[in-house]
Design a binder for these strands. Structure first.
Length: 560
RNA sequence: CGGGGCGUGGCGCAGCCUGGUAGCGCGCACCGUUCGGGUCGGUGAGGUCCACGGUUCAAAUCCGUGCGCCCCGACCA
Protein backbone atom coordinates (compact mmCIF):
# COMPACT_ATOMS: atom_id res chain seq x y z
CA UNK A 1 0.00 0.00 0.00
CA UNK A 2 2.62 2.50 1.03
CA UNK A 3 6.32 2.79 0.53
CA UNK A 4 8.12 5.01 3.00
CA UNK A 5 10.05 6.64 0.17
CA UNK A 6 6.72 7.86 -1.19
CA UNK A 7 5.14 8.89 2.11
CA UNK A 8 5.21 12.42 3.49
CA UNK A 9 6.27 11.43 6.97
CA UNK A 10 8.62 14.08 8.35
CA UNK A 11 9.97 12.55 11.54
CA UNK A 12 12.04 14.58 13.96
CA UNK A 13 14.68 13.52 16.37
CA UNK A 14 13.75 16.19 18.86
CA UNK A 15 10.35 17.37 20.02
CA UNK A 16 9.28 21.00 19.56
CA UNK A 17 10.92 23.14 22.20
CA UNK A 18 7.63 24.32 23.61
CA UNK A 19 5.92 20.93 23.83
CA UNK A 20 5.07 19.54 27.25
CA UNK A 21 2.52 16.77 26.78
CA UNK A 22 3.72 13.37 25.60
CA UNK A 23 1.15 13.21 22.83
CA UNK A 24 2.17 16.66 21.63
CA UNK A 25 5.85 15.71 21.46
CA UNK A 26 5.37 12.31 19.90
CA UNK A 27 2.71 13.14 17.36
CA UNK A 28 4.90 15.94 16.02
CA UNK A 29 8.07 13.87 16.14
CA UNK A 30 6.41 10.94 14.40
CA UNK A 31 5.29 13.19 11.56
CA UNK A 32 1.56 12.88 12.23
CA UNK A 33 0.64 16.52 12.86
CA UNK A 34 2.05 20.00 12.37
CA UNK A 35 1.05 23.27 13.98
CA UNK A 36 -0.38 26.13 11.94
CA UNK A 37 -1.21 28.54 14.75
CA UNK A 38 -2.30 28.51 18.36
CA UNK A 39 -4.76 25.65 18.65
CA UNK A 40 -4.69 25.04 14.90
CA UNK A 41 -3.22 21.85 13.53
CA UNK A 42 -2.76 20.11 10.21
CA UNK A 43 -2.96 16.35 10.01
CA UNK A 44 -0.22 14.92 7.80
CA UNK A 45 -0.91 11.72 5.83
CA UNK A 46 -0.03 9.18 8.51
CA UNK A 47 -1.84 11.17 11.19
CA UNK A 48 -4.89 11.48 9.01
CA UNK A 49 -4.95 7.73 8.53
CA UNK A 50 -5.21 7.39 12.31
CA UNK A 51 -7.95 9.99 12.42
CA UNK A 52 -9.92 8.31 9.67
CA UNK A 53 -9.59 4.87 11.19
CA UNK A 54 -11.12 6.22 14.36
CA UNK A 55 -13.85 7.94 12.37
CA UNK A 56 -14.73 4.72 10.61
CA UNK A 57 -15.19 2.83 13.87
CA UNK A 58 -17.40 5.57 15.22
CA UNK A 59 -19.40 5.61 12.00
CA UNK A 60 -19.98 1.87 12.17
CA UNK A 61 -21.19 2.05 15.75
CA UNK A 62 -23.45 5.00 15.04
CA UNK A 63 -24.97 3.23 12.08
CA UNK A 64 -25.48 0.13 14.18
CA UNK A 65 -27.91 2.03 16.45
CA UNK A 66 -29.73 3.47 13.48
CA UNK A 67 -27.92 6.76 13.19
CA UNK A 68 -28.16 8.48 9.79
CA UNK A 69 -25.04 10.28 8.61
CA UNK A 70 -25.40 13.70 7.01
CA UNK A 71 -23.43 16.95 6.78
CA UNK A 72 -24.11 20.48 7.94
CA UNK A 73 -22.09 23.62 7.24
CA UNK A 74 -19.57 25.27 9.53
CA UNK A 75 -20.62 28.79 8.61
CA UNK A 76 -24.01 29.72 10.05
CA UNK A 77 -26.27 32.74 10.06
CA UNK A 78 -26.32 34.28 13.52
CA UNK A 79 -30.08 34.23 13.77
CA UNK A 80 -30.71 30.74 15.18
CA UNK A 81 -27.90 31.29 17.68
CA UNK A 82 -29.64 34.40 18.87
CA UNK A 83 -32.87 32.47 19.20
CA UNK A 84 -31.31 29.93 21.55
CA UNK A 85 -29.44 32.58 23.50
CA UNK A 86 -26.05 31.22 22.59
CA UNK A 87 -24.89 34.09 20.40
CA UNK A 88 -23.32 35.74 23.46
CA UNK A 89 -20.99 32.82 24.24
CA UNK A 90 -17.40 34.11 24.25
CA UNK A 91 -16.00 30.99 22.58
CA UNK A 92 -18.27 31.49 19.58
CA UNK A 93 -16.43 32.93 16.57
CA UNK A 94 -18.46 35.75 15.06
CA UNK A 95 -18.00 37.40 11.69
CA UNK A 96 -19.87 39.31 9.01
CA UNK A 97 -20.40 38.46 5.36
CA UNK A 98 -19.90 41.02 2.55
CA UNK A 99 -23.39 42.38 3.02
CA UNK A 100 -22.74 42.96 6.68
CA UNK A 101 -24.94 40.12 7.91
CA UNK A 102 -23.88 38.56 11.21
CA UNK A 103 -22.51 35.05 10.83
CA UNK A 104 -20.99 32.56 13.25
CA UNK A 105 -18.64 29.60 12.94
CA UNK A 106 -20.20 26.48 14.37
CA UNK A 107 -18.97 25.39 17.79
CA UNK A 108 -21.61 22.67 17.65
CA UNK A 109 -24.74 22.05 15.58
CA UNK A 110 -27.82 21.96 17.80
CA UNK A 111 -29.25 25.12 16.26
CA UNK A 112 -28.97 23.93 12.69
CA UNK A 113 -30.08 20.35 13.10
CA UNK A 114 -33.01 21.39 15.23
CA UNK A 115 -33.96 23.90 12.58
CA UNK A 116 -34.03 21.17 9.94
CA UNK A 117 -36.08 18.88 12.12
CA UNK A 118 -38.44 21.68 13.09
CA UNK A 119 -39.03 22.46 9.43
CA UNK A 120 -39.51 18.88 8.28
CA UNK A 121 -40.97 16.83 11.10
CA UNK A 122 -44.74 17.05 11.42
CA UNK A 123 -45.99 13.83 12.90
CA UNK A 124 -45.26 11.46 15.74
CA UNK A 125 -44.76 8.93 12.93
CA UNK A 126 -41.52 10.72 11.98
CA UNK A 127 -40.01 10.01 15.40
CA UNK A 128 -37.76 8.80 16.87
CA UNK A 129 -34.73 9.68 14.77
CA UNK A 130 -30.96 9.80 15.22
CA UNK A 131 -28.92 12.06 12.93
CA UNK A 132 -25.20 12.65 13.03
CA UNK A 133 -22.26 14.05 11.14
CA UNK A 134 -18.52 14.50 11.31
CA UNK A 135 -17.80 18.16 10.95
CA UNK A 136 -15.32 20.85 11.90
CA UNK A 137 -16.03 22.74 15.10
CA UNK A 138 -14.63 26.18 15.81
CA UNK A 139 -14.18 27.38 19.37
CA UNK A 140 -12.26 30.44 20.42
CA UNK A 141 -10.69 28.74 23.41
CA UNK A 142 -9.12 31.03 25.99
CA UNK A 143 -6.16 28.72 26.16
CA UNK A 144 -5.45 26.02 23.59
CA UNK A 145 -2.87 23.55 24.87
CA UNK A 146 -1.03 20.27 24.59
CA UNK A 147 -0.94 19.76 20.85
CA UNK A 148 -4.15 18.27 19.63
CA UNK A 149 -5.65 17.78 23.09
CA UNK A 150 -7.29 21.20 23.25
CA UNK A 151 -7.57 23.07 19.97
CA UNK A 152 -9.61 25.90 18.52
CA UNK A 153 -10.62 23.90 15.47
CA UNK A 154 -11.32 20.20 15.49
CA UNK A 155 -13.50 17.58 13.91
CA UNK A 156 -16.26 16.22 16.06
CA UNK A 157 -18.80 13.52 15.55
CA UNK A 158 -21.96 15.06 16.88
CA UNK A 159 -25.18 13.10 16.95
CA UNK A 160 -28.65 14.28 17.84
CA UNK A 161 -31.63 12.24 18.86
CA UNK A 162 -35.23 13.33 18.44
CA UNK A 163 -37.99 11.68 20.41
CA UNK A 164 -41.63 12.11 21.24
CA UNK A 165 -41.16 12.32 24.99
CA UNK A 166 -38.79 11.81 27.88
CA UNK A 167 -39.28 8.04 27.81
CA UNK A 168 -38.23 8.02 24.17
CA UNK A 169 -35.20 10.12 25.01
CA UNK A 170 -34.21 7.57 27.65
CA UNK A 171 -34.25 4.87 24.99
CA UNK A 172 -32.19 6.90 22.53
CA UNK A 173 -29.78 7.89 25.27
CA UNK A 174 -29.31 4.28 26.29
CA UNK A 175 -28.60 3.31 22.69
CA UNK A 176 -25.80 5.86 22.65
CA UNK A 177 -24.40 4.55 25.92
CA UNK A 178 -24.13 1.15 24.30
CA UNK A 179 -22.69 2.52 21.07
CA UNK A 180 -20.10 4.56 22.93
CA UNK A 181 -19.12 1.70 25.20
CA UNK A 182 -18.55 -0.39 22.10
CA UNK A 183 -16.61 2.21 20.17
CA UNK A 184 -14.23 2.98 23.02
CA UNK A 185 -13.64 -0.72 23.52
CA UNK A 186 -12.98 -1.15 19.81
CA UNK A 187 -10.62 1.82 19.82
CA UNK A 188 -8.55 0.07 22.46
CA UNK A 189 -8.60 2.98 24.87
CA UNK A 190 -8.73 2.82 28.61
CA UNK A 191 -11.89 4.69 29.44
CA UNK A 192 -14.49 5.51 32.07
CA UNK A 193 -18.07 6.59 31.64
CA UNK A 194 -18.65 9.14 34.36
CA UNK A 195 -21.51 11.21 35.66
CA UNK A 196 -21.10 14.76 34.46
CA UNK A 197 -22.34 18.26 34.99
CA UNK A 198 -25.38 19.06 32.89
CA UNK A 199 -24.30 22.67 32.79
CA UNK A 200 -26.47 25.73 33.13
CA UNK A 201 -27.50 25.49 29.50
CA UNK A 202 -30.41 23.35 30.49
CA UNK A 203 -30.46 19.64 30.04
CA UNK A 204 -31.44 16.98 32.48
CA UNK A 205 -28.61 14.49 32.58
CA UNK A 206 -25.16 13.92 31.21
CA UNK A 207 -22.31 11.48 31.03
CA UNK A 208 -18.77 11.92 29.86
CA UNK A 209 -16.37 9.38 28.47
CA UNK A 210 -13.00 9.96 30.03
CA UNK A 211 -9.66 8.54 28.93
CA UNK A 212 -7.27 8.56 31.87
CA UNK A 213 -3.91 10.10 31.05
CA UNK A 214 -1.33 12.38 32.62
CA UNK A 215 -2.03 15.30 30.30
CA UNK A 216 -5.76 15.19 31.04
CA UNK A 217 -7.47 18.42 31.95
CA UNK A 218 -10.20 16.86 34.06
CA UNK A 219 -10.18 14.74 37.14
CA UNK A 220 -12.38 11.74 37.63
CA UNK A 221 -13.35 10.30 41.00
CA UNK A 222 -13.33 6.52 40.96
CA UNK A 223 -14.49 3.96 43.49
CA UNK A 224 -15.72 0.40 43.06
CA UNK A 225 -18.96 0.74 41.13
CA UNK A 226 -18.67 4.51 41.00
CA UNK A 227 -17.20 6.97 38.48
CA UNK A 228 -17.86 10.70 38.26
CA UNK A 229 -16.24 13.86 37.11
CA UNK A 230 -14.92 15.61 40.22
CA UNK A 231 -17.04 18.53 39.10
CA UNK A 232 -20.10 16.61 40.26
CA UNK A 233 -18.72 13.77 42.38
CA UNK A 234 -20.33 13.14 45.73
CA UNK A 235 -18.98 10.95 48.49
CA UNK A 236 -18.86 10.27 52.20
CA UNK A 237 -16.18 12.39 53.85
CA UNK A 238 -13.54 10.91 56.08
CA UNK A 239 -14.47 11.65 59.70
CA UNK A 240 -12.48 14.13 61.73
CA UNK A 241 -12.00 13.75 65.49
CA UNK A 242 -13.69 16.70 67.19
CA UNK A 243 -12.98 17.90 70.72
CA UNK A 244 -15.95 17.84 73.09
CA UNK A 245 -18.06 20.96 72.71
CA UNK A 246 -18.59 23.28 75.67
CA UNK A 247 -22.08 24.44 76.63
CA UNK A 248 -21.67 27.57 74.53
CA UNK A 249 -19.09 28.78 71.99
CA UNK A 250 -15.96 30.28 73.56
CA UNK A 251 -13.89 33.11 72.13
CA UNK A 252 -10.28 32.38 71.27
CA UNK A 253 -7.72 35.10 70.62
CA UNK A 254 -6.12 34.42 67.22
CA UNK A 255 -4.12 37.52 66.30
CA UNK A 256 -3.34 37.75 62.59
CA UNK A 257 -4.41 34.17 61.94
CA UNK A 258 -6.39 34.52 58.75
CA UNK A 259 -5.86 31.06 57.33
CA UNK A 260 -7.21 27.67 58.27
CA UNK A 261 -3.71 26.35 58.71
CA UNK A 262 -2.61 29.12 61.04
CA UNK A 263 -5.61 28.66 63.32
CA UNK A 264 -5.45 24.87 63.23
CA UNK A 265 -1.78 24.92 64.13
CA UNK A 266 -2.21 27.41 66.95
CA UNK A 267 -5.11 25.49 68.48
CA UNK A 268 -3.48 22.12 67.81
CA UNK A 269 -6.51 20.88 65.91
CA UNK A 270 -6.79 19.15 62.55
CA UNK A 271 -7.90 21.54 59.75
CA UNK A 272 -11.06 19.46 59.45
CA UNK A 273 -12.13 20.62 62.93
CA UNK A 274 -12.44 24.14 61.57
CA UNK A 275 -15.18 25.55 59.38
CA UNK A 276 -14.38 27.59 56.31
CA UNK A 277 -16.83 30.35 55.43
CA UNK A 278 -17.32 31.28 51.77
CA UNK A 279 -19.64 34.25 51.23
CA UNK A 280 -21.29 34.38 47.82
CA UNK A 281 -23.68 36.74 46.12
CA UNK A 282 -26.72 35.42 44.25
CA UNK A 283 -29.02 37.95 42.60
CA UNK A 284 -27.62 40.71 44.84
CA UNK A 285 -28.29 38.67 47.95
CA UNK A 286 -25.44 37.41 50.07
CA UNK A 287 -25.30 33.87 51.36
CA UNK A 288 -22.74 32.12 53.48
CA UNK A 289 -21.48 28.74 52.34
CA UNK A 290 -19.71 26.67 55.00
CA UNK A 291 -17.39 23.73 54.30
CA UNK A 292 -15.01 21.84 56.52
CA UNK A 293 -11.58 23.44 56.89
CA UNK A 294 -9.90 20.61 54.99
CA UNK A 295 -12.41 20.75 52.13
CA UNK A 296 -12.89 23.02 49.17
CA UNK A 297 -16.03 24.52 47.78
CA UNK A 298 -16.91 22.99 44.43
CA UNK A 299 -18.22 25.85 42.34
CA UNK A 300 -20.15 23.66 39.94
CA UNK A 301 -21.87 21.73 42.70
CA UNK A 302 -22.55 25.01 44.47
CA UNK A 303 -24.08 26.46 41.34
CA UNK A 304 -26.31 23.43 41.03
CA UNK A 305 -27.29 23.68 44.71
CA UNK A 306 -28.07 27.38 44.39
CA UNK A 307 -29.90 26.86 41.12
CA UNK A 308 -28.40 30.10 39.86
CA UNK A 309 -25.18 31.85 38.92
CA UNK A 310 -23.21 33.30 41.78
CA UNK A 311 -20.07 35.27 42.43
CA UNK A 312 -17.72 35.42 45.37
CA UNK A 313 -18.43 38.36 47.65
CA UNK A 314 -16.04 41.29 47.44
CA UNK A 315 -13.90 42.13 50.50
CA UNK A 316 -15.91 45.29 51.19
CA UNK A 317 -19.15 43.31 51.09
CA UNK A 318 -17.66 40.79 53.49
CA UNK A 319 -16.52 43.52 55.88
CA UNK A 320 -19.85 45.30 55.82
CA UNK A 321 -22.07 42.30 56.31
CA UNK A 322 -19.96 39.91 58.39
CA UNK A 323 -16.56 40.92 59.66
CA UNK A 324 -12.92 41.23 58.70
CA UNK A 325 -11.91 38.73 56.00
CA UNK A 326 -10.11 35.84 57.61
CA UNK A 327 -12.26 35.99 60.74
CA UNK A 328 -15.73 35.42 59.40
CA UNK A 329 -18.10 32.67 60.48
CA UNK A 330 -21.74 31.59 60.60
CA UNK A 331 -22.60 32.50 64.20
CA UNK A 332 -24.77 35.58 64.14
CA UNK A 333 -24.55 35.96 60.35
CA UNK A 334 -27.66 37.76 59.12
CA UNK A 335 -28.00 35.81 55.87
CA UNK A 336 -29.00 32.32 54.70
CA UNK A 337 -26.36 29.72 55.57
CA UNK A 338 -25.60 26.67 53.43
CA UNK A 339 -23.83 23.99 55.44
CA UNK A 340 -21.92 21.29 53.61
CA UNK A 341 -23.09 17.78 54.33
CA UNK A 342 -19.64 16.67 55.47
CA UNK A 343 -20.05 18.78 58.60
CA UNK A 344 -21.47 17.11 61.71
CA UNK A 345 -24.44 19.21 62.87
CA UNK A 346 -23.75 18.18 66.45
CA UNK A 347 -19.98 18.61 66.37
CA UNK A 348 -17.94 21.32 68.07
CA UNK A 349 -16.06 23.30 65.42
CA UNK A 350 -13.84 26.35 65.33
CA UNK A 351 -15.11 29.25 63.18
CA UNK A 352 -14.35 32.90 62.67
CA UNK A 353 -16.07 35.20 65.18
CA UNK A 354 -16.80 38.00 62.68
CA UNK A 355 -14.53 40.22 64.76
CA UNK A 356 -10.84 41.00 64.34
CA UNK A 357 -8.37 38.49 65.73
CA UNK A 358 -11.07 36.32 67.26
CA UNK A 359 -12.35 32.83 66.52
CA UNK A 360 -15.03 30.81 68.27
CA UNK A 361 -14.37 27.36 69.66
CA UNK A 362 -17.05 24.73 70.25
CA UNK A 363 -19.49 25.88 67.63
CA UNK A 364 -22.32 23.35 67.20
CA UNK A 365 -24.18 24.05 63.98
CA UNK A 366 -27.52 22.60 65.05
CA UNK A 367 -27.42 24.69 68.21
CA UNK A 368 -25.65 27.89 67.26
CA UNK A 369 -26.97 28.93 63.86
CA UNK A 370 -29.70 28.05 61.37
CA UNK A 371 -28.65 26.38 58.14
CA UNK A 372 -29.67 24.46 55.09
CA UNK A 373 -27.70 21.25 54.50
CA UNK A 374 -26.18 20.95 51.02
CA UNK A 375 -23.48 18.96 49.23
CA UNK A 376 -21.16 21.55 47.74
CA UNK A 377 -17.63 20.37 48.43
CA UNK A 378 -15.14 18.72 46.12
CA UNK A 379 -14.49 15.10 46.98
CA UNK A 380 -10.95 14.17 47.97
CA UNK A 381 -9.03 10.94 47.69
CA UNK A 382 -9.95 8.64 50.54
CA UNK A 383 -13.60 9.69 50.74
CA UNK A 384 -15.87 6.69 50.36
CA UNK A 385 -18.78 5.66 48.19
CA UNK A 386 -20.74 2.67 49.51
CA UNK A 387 -17.74 1.83 51.66
CA UNK A 388 -15.22 1.92 48.81
CA UNK A 389 -12.41 4.46 48.88
CA UNK A 390 -12.29 7.08 46.14
CA UNK A 391 -9.21 7.74 44.08
CA UNK A 392 -8.75 10.66 41.72
CA UNK A 393 -7.24 10.36 38.27
CA UNK A 394 -6.50 12.95 35.59
CA UNK A 395 -8.33 12.23 32.36
CA UNK A 396 -9.21 13.73 29.03
CA UNK A 397 -12.81 13.98 27.91
CA UNK A 398 -13.19 12.07 24.65
CA UNK A 399 -16.95 11.86 24.40
CA UNK A 400 -20.09 13.14 26.03
CA UNK A 401 -23.80 12.41 26.16
CA UNK A 402 -26.38 15.03 27.02
CA UNK A 403 -30.08 14.78 27.65
CA UNK A 404 -31.17 18.09 26.26
CA UNK A 405 -34.91 17.69 26.73
CA UNK A 406 -36.62 20.63 25.06
CA UNK A 407 -33.77 23.08 25.60
CA UNK A 408 -33.43 23.65 21.84
CA UNK A 409 -36.72 22.41 20.50
CA UNK A 410 -38.62 25.06 22.44
CA UNK A 411 -36.85 28.19 21.15
CA UNK A 412 -36.54 26.73 17.64
CA UNK A 413 -40.10 25.43 17.67
CA UNK A 414 -39.35 21.81 16.89
CA UNK A 415 -42.64 20.15 17.56
CA UNK A 416 -44.83 17.37 16.21
CA UNK A 417 -48.49 16.40 16.27
CA UNK A 418 -49.28 13.43 18.48
CA UNK A 419 -51.95 10.80 17.83
CA UNK A 420 -54.60 13.14 19.21
CA UNK A 421 -53.54 15.95 16.92
CA UNK A 422 -52.01 17.94 19.79
CA UNK A 423 -48.72 19.75 19.28
CA UNK A 424 -45.88 18.42 21.43
CA UNK A 425 -42.27 19.52 21.78
CA UNK A 426 -39.61 17.14 20.49
CA UNK A 427 -37.31 15.71 23.15
CA UNK A 428 -33.67 15.88 22.17
CA UNK A 429 -30.34 14.44 23.13
CA UNK A 430 -26.87 15.32 21.82
CA UNK A 431 -23.84 13.10 21.71
CA UNK A 432 -20.29 14.24 20.99
CA UNK A 433 -17.11 12.39 20.17
CA UNK A 434 -13.60 13.71 19.46
CA UNK A 435 -11.44 11.61 17.10
CA UNK A 436 -8.37 13.83 17.56
CA UNK A 437 -8.54 13.63 21.32
CA UNK A 438 -9.03 9.90 21.14
CA UNK A 439 -5.88 9.59 19.06
CA UNK A 440 -3.93 11.80 21.45
CA UNK A 441 -5.30 9.90 24.44
CA UNK A 442 -4.10 6.62 22.93
CA UNK A 443 -0.64 8.12 22.48
CA UNK A 444 -0.68 9.32 26.08
CA UNK A 445 -1.84 5.97 27.42
CA UNK A 446 0.48 3.65 25.56
CA UNK A 447 3.63 5.54 24.63
CA UNK A 448 6.98 4.37 25.97
CA UNK A 449 10.58 5.53 25.77
CA UNK A 450 10.77 4.59 22.09
CA UNK A 451 7.64 6.36 20.96
CA UNK A 452 4.03 5.69 20.17
CA UNK A 453 2.37 2.30 20.56
CA UNK A 454 -0.97 2.37 18.81
CA UNK A 455 -3.87 0.14 19.62
CA UNK A 456 -4.36 -2.13 16.62
CA UNK A 457 -7.61 -0.44 15.64
CA UNK A 458 -6.23 3.07 15.19
CA UNK A 459 -2.67 2.47 14.02
CA UNK A 460 -1.79 4.29 10.80
CA UNK A 461 -0.66 0.95 9.36
CA UNK A 462 -1.10 -2.59 10.61
CA UNK A 463 2.46 -3.59 9.86
CA UNK A 464 5.72 -1.82 9.20
CA UNK A 465 8.00 -3.88 7.03
CA UNK A 466 11.68 -3.07 7.49
CA UNK A 467 14.22 -4.34 5.02
CA UNK A 468 17.91 -4.38 5.84
CA UNK A 469 20.13 -4.65 2.85
CA UNK A 470 21.33 -2.75 -0.15
CA UNK A 471 19.52 -2.19 -3.40
CA UNK A 472 19.60 -5.38 -5.41
CA UNK A 473 20.24 -7.61 -2.41
CA UNK A 474 18.43 -10.84 -1.71
CA UNK A 475 16.79 -9.20 1.31
CA UNK A 476 15.30 -6.49 -0.88
CA UNK A 477 13.88 -8.99 -3.33
CA UNK A 478 12.28 -10.99 -0.57
CA UNK A 479 10.90 -7.89 1.13
CA UNK A 480 9.27 -6.77 -2.10
CA UNK A 481 7.60 -10.12 -2.42
CA UNK A 482 6.51 -10.12 1.23
CA UNK A 483 5.15 -6.62 0.81
CA UNK A 484 2.78 -7.86 -1.86
CA UNK A 485 1.82 -10.99 0.07
CA UNK A 486 1.02 -9.03 3.24
CA UNK A 487 -1.32 -6.80 1.30
CA UNK A 488 -2.96 -9.83 -0.23
CA UNK A 489 -3.44 -11.16 3.29
CA UNK A 490 -5.51 -8.04 4.02
CA UNK A 491 -3.00 -6.00 5.96
CA UNK A 492 -2.18 -2.32 5.64
CA UNK A 493 1.56 -2.28 5.20
CA UNK A 494 4.12 0.48 5.47
CA UNK A 495 7.23 -0.67 3.69
CA UNK A 496 10.44 1.06 4.80
CA UNK A 497 12.27 0.84 1.50
CA UNK A 498 14.60 3.72 2.27
CA UNK A 499 18.33 3.48 1.75
CA UNK A 500 19.03 3.95 5.44
CA UNK A 501 20.81 2.13 8.22
CA UNK A 502 19.11 -0.36 10.52
CA UNK A 503 19.26 1.89 13.57
CA UNK A 504 17.44 4.68 11.84
CA UNK A 505 14.78 2.37 10.46
CA UNK A 506 14.13 0.68 13.77
CA UNK A 507 14.01 3.97 15.64
CA UNK A 508 11.53 5.46 13.18
CA UNK A 509 9.36 2.36 13.24
CA UNK A 510 9.17 2.43 17.02
CA UNK A 511 8.43 6.15 16.98
CA UNK A 512 5.53 5.71 14.59
CA UNK A 513 4.23 2.82 16.66
CA UNK A 514 2.56 0.38 14.29
CA UNK A 515 1.57 -2.75 16.23
CA UNK A 516 3.80 -5.11 14.26
CA UNK A 517 7.25 -4.65 12.80
CA UNK A 518 8.67 -7.17 10.40
CA UNK A 519 12.38 -7.33 9.75
CA UNK A 520 13.89 -8.90 6.67
CA UNK A 521 17.61 -9.12 7.25
CA UNK A 522 20.53 -11.36 6.67
CA UNK A 523 20.70 -12.58 10.25
CA UNK A 524 17.45 -14.53 10.22
CA UNK A 525 17.13 -14.96 6.49
CA UNK A 526 20.03 -17.38 6.57
CA UNK A 527 17.76 -19.71 8.57
CA UNK A 528 14.92 -19.08 6.14
CA UNK A 529 13.08 -16.86 8.60
CA UNK A 530 11.96 -13.30 9.09
CA UNK A 531 11.50 -11.55 12.40
CA UNK A 532 8.35 -10.25 13.99
CA UNK A 533 8.42 -7.62 16.72
CA UNK A 534 5.30 -6.72 18.64
CA UNK A 535 5.39 -3.00 19.43
CA UNK A 536 3.34 -3.27 22.62
CA UNK A 537 5.51 -5.12 25.09
CA UNK A 538 8.27 -5.42 22.53
CA UNK A 539 8.06 -9.16 22.20
CA UNK A 540 9.99 -10.77 19.37
CA UNK A 541 9.79 -14.01 17.45
CA UNK A 542 10.69 -15.49 14.07
CA UNK A 543 8.59 -17.14 11.44
CA UNK A 544 9.52 -19.11 8.32
CA UNK A 545 9.61 -17.12 5.10
CA UNK A 546 7.17 -19.51 3.55
CA UNK A 547 3.73 -18.61 4.77
CA UNK A 548 5.02 -15.59 6.65
CA UNK A 549 2.28 -13.26 5.44
CA UNK A 550 -0.48 -15.57 6.61
CA UNK A 551 1.23 -16.07 9.96
CA UNK A 552 1.53 -12.31 10.46
CA UNK A 553 -2.11 -11.77 9.55
CA UNK A 554 -3.14 -14.34 12.10
CA UNK A 555 -0.91 -12.85 14.78
CA UNK A 556 -2.20 -9.36 14.07
CA UNK A 557 -5.75 -10.40 14.82
CA UNK A 558 -4.75 -11.36 18.36
CA UNK A 559 -3.15 -8.03 19.21
CA UNK A 560 -4.73 -5.43 21.51
C1' C B 1 -8.52 38.02 31.89
C1' G B 2 -3.95 37.97 35.41
C1' G B 3 1.25 36.23 35.86
C1' G B 4 5.81 34.25 33.63
C1' G B 5 8.74 32.95 29.33
C1' C B 6 10.12 32.72 24.25
C1' G B 7 10.77 34.47 18.81
C1' U B 8 18.33 33.62 15.48
C1' G B 9 19.06 28.44 8.40
C1' G B 10 14.17 22.71 8.13
C1' C B 11 14.48 21.01 13.81
C1' G B 12 16.85 21.85 18.71
C1' C B 13 19.81 25.72 20.67
C1' A B 14 24.19 29.36 21.83
C1' G B 15 25.35 34.50 20.94
C1' C B 16 22.16 39.60 23.63
C1' C B 17 23.99 41.31 30.00
C1' U B 18 29.16 44.39 28.12
C1' G B 19 26.66 47.09 20.29
C1' G B 20 31.68 46.05 15.80
C1' U B 21 32.84 39.56 10.32
C1' A B 22 26.10 35.23 12.67
C1' G B 23 27.82 30.29 15.38
C1' C B 24 27.03 24.88 17.25
C1' G B 25 24.51 19.97 16.98
C1' C B 26 21.05 17.40 14.05
C1' G B 27 18.95 17.37 9.30
C1' C B 28 19.74 18.37 3.88
C1' A B 29 22.98 17.78 -1.14
C1' C B 30 27.28 15.34 -3.26
C1' C B 31 31.63 11.73 -2.84
C1' G B 32 33.54 7.66 -0.35
C1' U B 33 32.63 4.20 3.78
C1' U B 34 29.33 1.13 6.62
C1' C B 35 25.00 -2.24 6.50
C1' G B 36 20.98 -5.84 12.82
C1' G B 37 20.05 -0.23 16.72
C1' G B 38 20.10 6.96 14.58
C1' U B 39 28.07 4.14 11.23
C1' C B 40 32.34 7.03 9.98
C1' G B 41 35.22 10.66 7.01
C1' G B 42 35.28 14.62 3.46
C1' U B 43 33.05 18.60 0.55
C1' G B 44 28.95 21.91 0.19
C1' A B 45 24.21 24.58 0.11
C1' G B 46 21.09 27.15 3.25
C1' G B 47 19.69 32.78 7.70
C1' U B 48 15.22 39.89 5.68
C1' C B 49 18.34 37.27 13.50
C1' C B 50 9.35 38.05 14.11
C1' A B 51 7.82 43.20 12.16
C1' C B 52 7.99 48.42 12.32
C1' G B 53 10.07 52.71 14.50
C1' G B 54 13.98 54.97 17.55
C1' U B 55 19.15 55.64 19.71
C1' U B 56 24.16 55.15 17.50
C1' C B 57 29.61 56.01 13.09
C1' A B 58 27.65 50.97 13.75
C1' A B 59 21.94 47.05 16.34
C1' A B 60 20.59 39.83 16.53
C1' U B 61 22.43 42.70 20.87
C1' C B 62 20.04 48.94 23.70
C1' C B 63 14.89 51.60 23.85
C1' G B 64 9.59 51.80 22.21
C1' U B 65 5.32 49.83 19.78
C1' G B 66 3.02 45.85 17.50
C1' C B 67 2.49 40.70 16.06
C1' G B 68 3.13 35.56 17.00
C1' C B 69 3.91 31.26 20.18
C1' C B 70 4.37 28.47 24.92
C1' C B 71 3.61 27.58 30.19
C1' C B 72 0.99 28.58 34.96
C1' G B 73 -3.37 30.49 37.15
C1' A B 74 -8.40 31.65 36.42
C1' C B 75 -10.99 29.63 43.09
C1' C B 76 -12.59 29.49 48.50
C1' A B 77 -11.59 35.06 52.85
Amino acid sequence: MTRLTNLFLPTEREPPGDAEAISHKLMVRAGLIRQVGSGLWSWLPAGWRVHERIVQIVREEMNRIGGQEMLMPVLHPAEPWRRTGRYEIDELFKLKDRRGADMVLAMTHEEIITGHVAAAVRSYRDLPMILYHFQVKERDEPRPRAGVLRTREFIMKDAYSFDRDSEGLEVSYQKHVEAYDRMFDRLGLEWYRVEADVGMMGGIGAHEYMAPCAAGENEVALAPGYAANVEVASAQAQPVPLPPAPAAPEEVHTPGMTTINAVATALELPPGALLKAFPVVVDDEMRLVIVRGDHRVNEIKLQVALGADFRGARPDEVSNRLGPPGFIGPVGAQMPILLDAAIEPGGGYVTGANRPDLHLRGVVPSRDFPFEAVDVRSVVAGDTVAGGAIRLEPAIEVGNLFKLGTRYSDPLRAAYLDQDGAEQPIWMGSYGFGPARSAAAAVEQYADEQGISWPRSMAPFDVELVVLGKEGSEERALAEQLYVELQQAGLDVLYDDRDAGPGEKFADAELLGCPVRLTVGRRSLGAGEIEIQIRRGRGSRTVPVDGAAAAVAELWRELP
